[in-house]
């Protein structure tokens, strides 16, 4: 069973490869901490709702607000399938590990 739903986001940027990931539970610090192993993470905690932005080495950008149940990911247009698969595999592994804890 998939632990998240994914949906392509249509917007007016040229060659946009942005996807929304929806979860059954709210995004929390622990999940974002886990994700930080994938790349460079920044969290703006001064905002009314803290916003995180994770930049992966392949150019993918993952972001969202803590407490929300969705986050977005933009993948590099020239290797979107490979980048998306890498991220989704890692995300699934992180969520599966949490479930078995």
């Amino acid at each position: 069973m998939s632990c998240f739903d994914v949906e392509k986001i249509e917007n007016c940027y040229a060659h946009s490869q942005t996807y929304a990931y929806a979860f059954a539970v709210a995004l929390d610090d622990r999940l974002v901490d886990n994700l930080s192993t994938l790349g460079e993470l920044t969290i703006n905690r001064k905002f009314r709702r803290p916003f995180f932005l994770l930049k992966l080495a392949d150019g993918a950008e993952i972001r969202g607000a803590l407490g929300d149940d969705r986050m977005k990911a933009s993948f590099p247009d020239e290797r979107v399938d490979e980048s998306k698969r890498f991220f989704e595999d890692a995300l699934a592994a992180i969520l599966a590990a949490r479930e078995t804890e």
């Binding site: 917007n11 940027y13 040229a14 703006n44 905002f47 009314r48 709702r49 916003f51 607000a65 929300d68």
Partner: peptide, 20 residues
């Protein structure tokens, strides 16, 4: 795109980002 999301998600400010 990301600035627009920050404004919406973290500050409840709705605008439009893109090529319009």
């Amino acid at each position: 795109e990301i600035l627009g999301e920050m404004l919406a998600l973290s500050f409840d400010i709705i605008c439009r980002a893109g090529l319009h």
